[in-house]
Write a protein that binds this DNA or RNA. Structure first.
Lengths: 135, 135
DNA sequence: TTGCGTGCAAAGGTTTTGCATGGCA
DNA sequence: TGCCATGCAAAACCTTTGCACGCAA
């Protein structure tokens, strides 16, 4: 049975305060800056637990950057968000789109694979960067 | 102007011999096992160049595992492959599917983002693992 | 001969692990 | 009082970087 600790609340609150996504290192730095230093080992351990329990979502954006975490506690609104990562400028774009749902359904029915859109990252080139290439 | 070296051939041949994908570490180990030791720095440098030149593709599967590389020299057949990664058993499944093309087209037209399917990894649960959950 | 490519070693970064201590139940 | 959680430090890991030497052109 997991215990309820102050550090757990701090980490969760930190994630919640951030509209976007944070790496584990972001969380560690944010807590340190706020005056509540939390050991990095604890942050990693708690983040993994939050993901297991469904309070947070975890996905990989970039191989240099570590894993990214995002709060998912209250609303499931972001559940069907996917992400677009521009490999040129590095921007990460949220994508809410019915087409994704259709795709997920198709993959489930035809290929027997249940996709978790919240984790999935599409790589490519964003409009701005594509514009710069072909002016 | 890039030079043509023995190590470059070895690395490319190593990738080509593998039907699937390899991490940089896999390449290093494979070459070492084959008796041709190639320095890890060289492997990383050459792999990056191969990706730049289009001879190989690179994508991220798992944050613990490093980047994955795949040969893409002869045929572009795999160009429109996406990958499904089962978060339960860790299996990586190739997905060739017209629906993906439609999605990419939709994202390009409606969201102005050109997706590179070859890099994209869908996370979720495969049929086998889903079956084990609900027998 | 020129200068890119290589290899070794060291450094950089994130994440994990071991172990003694502290705090929740 | 138990036992999980924490924190520190050290370790493990992949990847990058610096530098001298070797090899392709």
């Amino acid at each position: 049975m997991p215990y309820h600790t102050k550090q757990n609340d701090l980490i969760l609150e930190c994630l919640r305060s951030q509209p976007g996504h944070m790496t584990a290192q972001d969380v560690i730095r944010a807590l340190a800056d706020a005056g509540h230093g939390v050991g990095s080992a604890t942050v990693y351990r708690r983040l993994d637990r939050l993901v297991e329990s469904g309070m947070a979502r975890k996905f990989i954006v970039d191989e240099k950057l570590g894993a990214c975490y995002q709060y998912a506690g209250d609303s499931q609104e972001c559940e069907r968000h996917s992400h677009l990562k521009c490999v040129r400028c590095g921007r990460l774009i949220h994508l809410s789109c019915g087409f994704i749902d259709e795709l997920d359904e198709h993959i489930l029915k035809e290929h027997g694979f249940r996709v978790d859109s919240g984790r999935t990252v599409f790589y490519g080139v964003c409009a701005d960067c594509a514009g710069e290439e072909n002016p």
